[in-house]
Amino acid sequence: MDLLWDGLIEAIRLILRADPELQQLVSRSLMVSLTATALAAAAGIPAGIALAVGRFPGRALLQVVVSTGMGLPPVLVGLVVTLFLWRTGPFGALGLLYTPAAMVLAQFLVATPIAAGFTRAALGLLEPDLLAALRVDGAGRLALGWELVRAALPQVLLAVAAAFGRAISEVGASLMVGGNIAGQTRILTTAIVLETGRGNFALAIALGIVLLALAFVVNVALGWSARVPAAAGT
């Protein structure tokens, strides 16, 4: 209990004195994870729509890939991305390893299956008559997908929130491809690992509290975004 209390006090101190290092960690964490989440949503939501209503060759394989990806170990993602970005790897010439861009890529890979799987589940809860009605009205693929997302918007935003939670809480892959370099690729999760290894438990707990607060704020914002269209439609 003393460690938890010390961590809470340290978190309040860091926030109140606007600690520059903490601000860097927060801004870099948000930049990396929000970018990865936006990319994951852009790829995962259409994939979820396709799985929910599409009939196409390779659909079963895509379902297996998404289901497997939802439980994919992040360290495995980190290993694969590292091999591809290593100086002797296929994309080593790009010089992306140990940069925020590599961390965005790793978080994108772990978050996209979450967005796709949750979107598919959300659309599966809709009334079958809605899909039939849209098809009878002659809605094209894009229009059909858009209307389905609108109908299940709160649940789809939940899918985005889950993808963000997966991204911002990820540590293994980010540590491997980012290197936890101070001032460059260190984010909240990797900083927590570092401070725990050093025995600075109060600071590690403080950073964990800040990380939890960030996740809470983003999820509240997404929840509010889901209620605004619903309220406007009533």
Results as ranks from 00 to 15, higher is better:
Leu79Phe: 13
Val193Pro: 14
Arg198Met: 12
Arg17Thr: 14
Ile187Lys: 00
Leu131Gln: 07
Arg186Trp: 02
Thr88Glu: 15
Met103Leu: 01
Ala152Leu: 04
Leu203Lys: 11
Val177Glu: 06
Leu175Ile: 05
Leu157Glu: 14
Pro100Tyr: 03
Ala213Leu: 15
Ala215Gly: 06
Leu8Asp: 07
Leu30Phe: 04
Leu212Cys: 14
Ser29Gln: 09
Ile187Arg: 00
Ala47Gly: 06
Ala18Gly: 12
Gly92Leu: 11
Ala162His: 13
Trp86Gln: 13
Leu131Asp: 12
Ile49Leu: 11
Ala206Ile: 08
Arg28Ile: 06
Leu222Pro: 03
Pro229Gln: 00
Val64Gly: 05
Met1Ser: 06
Leu144Ile: 14
Gly145Val: 13
Leu105Lys: 06
Ile12Phe: 05
Arg198Cys: 06
Thr190Tyr: 08
Ala202Cys: 14
Leu39Pro: 13
Leu85Glu: 09
Gly179Glu: 01
Arg87Lys: 14
Ala232Thr: 04
Gly172Asn: 02
Leu211His: 08
Phe91Trp: 15
Asp2Trp: 05
Ala167Ser: 06
Ile209Thr: 10
Thr37Pro: 02
Phe108Met: 01
Leu211Pro: 13
Leu8Gln: 05
Asp19Ser: 07
Leu158Trp: 05
Ala121Leu: 11
Ala111Asn: 01
Gly58Met: 11
Gly223Lys: 07
Ala202Phe: 14
Gly89Thr: 12
Ala221Val: 13
Gly124Glu: 04
Val160Glu: 07
Arg13Gly: 03
Pro73Trp: 05
Leu144Gly: 15
Leu222Glu: 09
Ala152Asn: 08
Ala111Val: 00
Ala42Leu: 09
Leu25Trp: 12
Ala106Gln: 00
Ile49Cys: 11
Ala231Gly: 09
Ala161Glu: 14
Ala206Met: 05
Ala36Thr: 04
Leu134Tyr: 12
Val64Glu: 10
Ile114Asn: 01
Phe118Pro: 13
Ile15Val: 13
Leu72Trp: 08
Ala152Trp: 04
Gly7Gln: 01
Leu39Val: 09
Leu153Val: 12
Thr190Trp: 07
Ala151Arg: 02
Thr82Val: 15
Leu96Gln: 10
Ala115Arg: 00
Val110Leu: 00
Gly197Met: 10
Ala41Arg: 00
Leu211Asn: 09
Ala38Asn: 12
Val64Asn: 05
Gly233Tyr: 08
Leu61Trp: 13
Arg28Leu: 12
Val156Asp: 15
Asp129Ile: 02
Pro128Gly: 01
Leu194Thr: 11
Asp2Leu: 11
Leu212Thr: 15
Leu125Phe: 07
Gly71Met: 04
Ala38Val: 10
Leu188Tyr: 08
Ala232Arg: 02
Thr190Glu: 04
Leu222Cys: 10
Thr185Asp: 03
Arg87Gln: 14
Phe164Pro: 00
Glu10His: 03
Thr82Ala: 15
Gly58Arg: 11
Val217Thr: 10
Val110Gln: 00
Pro128Arg: 00
Val66Asp: 01
Leu175Ala: 01
Ala232Tyr: 03
Leu72Ile: 09
Val81Met: 08
Ser33Glu: 07
Val193Lys: 03
Leu142Ile: 13
Thr88Cys: 15
Ala161Leu: 11
Leu214Val: 14
Asp137Tyr: 10
Ile181Asp: 02
Gln24Cys: 03
Pro73Arg: 01
Val65Trp: 08
Pro46Phe: 03
Gln23Pro: 15
Gly78Thr: 08
Arg150Asp: 09
Leu214Phe: 14
Gly92Lys: 05
Ala42Thr: 05
